[in-house]
Design a protein around this nucleic acid. Structure first.
Length: 258
DNA sequence: ATGACGGTGTGGCACCGA
């Protein structure tokens, strides 16, 4: 079973690339972030023609998340229960697999702009609410995957310039503590279960030849619960779509379960 | 210190992302 995450930075613009990628990478589940469209514009028909059902939480212009799957999606939850939020950032669903159901929580985590801003305070509140909700989800669904654009570089090796960017957004102690708190619930960063290339990232700035110079951050993550951990056989970043014309600034991350 | 690039909206630029 393969489960992938990809921040597409506008599904309207990137739909042809998503369909092309799915043809080359027929994963069982693809989780998308930054759809930037309303539900009436969501391409349900095109995805269904490609073999995928979809559930989405949409918002005009900003945010928006979706789960695409080859098998039926069940028990859908939109946003964090009990956390008032005007922004469309989370969708959860259960997918069936041969080995049993897998619970998926797909998040477009708050960016946070800069420490000290209202947006940063919102990011920390949002992360705290997510943590509490993930604990209850994990209790109900032992086979759990939490994935998406976390907007956190968990460690110095996840940043092209950990010294120059120390204590700036994605690199702060508070954000990293929240990431560690998620791991503390019994989740594992699947990417780090394996030897990976040095300086491997999932996002590169559009400006200043960021991708060509590999000035990036690893901020897109896939966390797996204890019950799934032993079944993980691979986790990779697929840099190929970042080389497309008109690419998203993020690359997909792909998890393989044995 | 700033902006660089790209997407969206009802625009002639501003806002946002990371």
């Amino acid at each position: 079973m393969q489960i992938a995450t990809w921040n597409v930075n506008s599904l309207s613009v990137r739909l042809p690339q998503v369909l092309d990628w799915l043809t080359q990478n027929p994963v069982d589940v693809l989780c998308l972030q930054e759809l930037k469209l309303t539900e009436d514009k969501f391409p349900f028909a095109a995805l269904q023609a490609a073999g995928y059902e979809a559930v989405a939480l949409c918002q005009k212009t900003y945010n928006g998340v979706a789960i695409l799957a080859r098998s039926p999606l069940d028990a859908v939850v939109r946003n964090i229960p009990g956390f008032e939020d005007e922004q469309a950032r989370v969708i959860a669903a259960t997918v069936l697999s041969g080995a049993g159901p897998v619970r998926i929580i797909n998040g477009y985590f708050v960016n946070g702009q800069a420490p000290g801003t209202d947006k940063f305070a919102y990011k920390l509140r949002w992360l705290a609410a997510l943590h509490d909700w993930v604990r209850t989800e994990l209790a109900a669904h032992p086979r759990l995957v939490v994935l998406g654009d976390f907007n956190v570089a968990p460690e110095d090796r996840d940043s092209y310039d950990p010294v120059g960017l120390a204590d700036t957004i994605h690199h702060t102690r508070e954000e990293r503590a929240h990431f560690q708190a998620l791991l503390g619930l019994g989740l594992t960063d699947a990417y780090r279960l394996f030897e990976q290339p040095e300086k491997s990232y999932s996002w590169w700035d559009y400006r200043m030849l960021g991708f060509q110079k590999n000035r990036g951050l690893r901020i897109d993550h896939i966390l797996v619960s204890e019950a799934l951990r032993a079944t993980v056989t691979a986790c990779v970043v697929d840099r190929a779509p970042r080389k497309n014309p008109q690419p998203s600034d993020h690359a997909p991350v792909v998890l393989t379960l044995g």
